[in-house]
Amino acid sequence: MPTIVVDVMPKPEILDPQGKAVSSALPRIGIEGFAQVRQGKRFELTVDGEVTDEVLAAARKAAETLLSNPVIEDVVSVAVEDV
């Protein structure tokens, strides 16, 4: 079934405490060389049927209204993926 993938990331100007924690944990397991880690969210909306323009529009609306908070997050992509 086709899936619409929505990626949400914290806004660049917002400090990302979780990403910072992951970043500081990496050297502890011997992984070096990454300047920064930022943590976001991936949503998979499985479509029952065909991905029409209406379905995509509904997914975009969901991304903007419920899946992200525009004060702290950006929707970085809404894309169709065949799983």
Partner: peptide
Amino acid sequence: ESHLLPGSMIKNDHL
């Protein structure tokens, strides 16, 4: 979240 007040809350800086 209801937009009755501006801004938002994120995780505490010290986690």
